[in-house]
């Protein structure tokens, strides 16, 4: 049975005239131990799906089943031991006035876990930060180190499912490689099921088994990474994303502009 099953999920913001369907009838399944990619441009609803899954957004309709249990909008405390999330911006996701130690103590205190000291030391080791980092403030850490702390915070509750919201898009490429390697290691060690949200097809292709391409709240196409690597997308939008991710091409860029008439009037 699938670890995560999402059926006809919809999330809308606003009401009446200004109602916006951020996510519009989305369905997908993720098997245990798999990593599923959600790719699309900003505002396509991919992060909103993660927020509904994680319980940060409780205004959704449809059905979410995690590990066999159907989820309600309001979550029990035990839910959060099973599902954790890593955010995009390592500069905004750590409390600026808490040391690494305080940040990692918080989940332990909330869930009343024992062996706090040991757990913190262990998880810091696991994400490649030594004990020397334990009493530093976020402003004393680099972007990559902050993201490691954020990953440690997610791991300390030993979850089964890790939701990754653009975990490397704020980092330099060399740091991105380190973090992606770390995530791959942790995933296999802890046998995690992951959903990775990104706008970068290359990152998705590197990390995931299957992916869904999203635009305007809908899944346009679901495909395997092999299909993507073999340049076999079915939907024209996926093809466009694929081409754009390969770099600038004068001929294609000119063609893309012609298809933009609708965009102008739409935005205006």
């Amino acid at each position: 049975m699938a670890m995560i099953a999402v059926e006809d999920l919809s999330v809308a913001f606003g009401s009446g005239e200004s109602l916006v369907h951020a996510v519009d009838g989305v369905s997908f399944q993720v098997e245990a131990g798999d990593t599923f990619g959600l790719v699309g441009e900003s505002g396509c609803g991919k992060s909103t799906i993660l927020r509904a899954l994680s319980g940060l957004n409780d205004h959704w309709h449809g059905q979410i089943i995690i590990d066999g249990a159907r989820l309600e909008p309001k979550r029990q405390r035990s839910f959060f031991k099973k599902v954790q999330m890593v955010f995009q911006d390592p500069y905004g996701s750590l409390h600026p006035r808490h040391t690494v130690n305080t940040t990692l103590m918080e989940p332990i205190a909330i869930h009343g876990l024992d062996r706090a000291d040991q757990r913190i030391a262990q998880v810091l080791e696991q994400v490649g930060l030594g004990p020397a980092f334990r009493f530093r403030y976020p402003h004393q850490l680099s972007g990559g180190q902050r993201q490691r702390v954020a990953i440690a915070r997610a791991l300390i509750l030993e979850p089964k499912i890790l939701l990754l919201d653009e975990p490397t898009s704020a980092l330099d490429v060399s740091v991105q490689a380190e973090i992606l390697n770390l995530l791959a290691d942790i995933r296999s060690q802890a046998r995690l099921t992951c959903i990775l949200v990104s706008h970068d097809l290359a990152v998705i292709a590197h990390m995931c088994h299957r992916l869904a391409v999203m635009n305007q709240g809908k899944i346009y196409e679901e495909l395997t990474v092999d299909d993507l690597a073999g340049n076999r997308p079915r939907h024209s939008y996926t093809r466009q994303l694929l081409q754009a991710s390969l770099g600038y091409d004068r001929r294609l860029a000119a063609a893309a502009t012609l298809a933009d008439d609708g965009l102008d009037s739409g935005a205006a």
Binding site: S174, A177, N181, H206, M207, L246
Partner: peptide
């Protein structure tokens, strides 16, 4: 060379990315 090697690529799948 290190920067280029650390980039993930769609067409070529590697178990690990090269770290600079």
């Amino acid at each position: 060379q290190g920067l280029l090697a650390s980039l993930p690529r769609i067409a070529e799948r590697r178990p690990r990315l090269a770290v600079l």
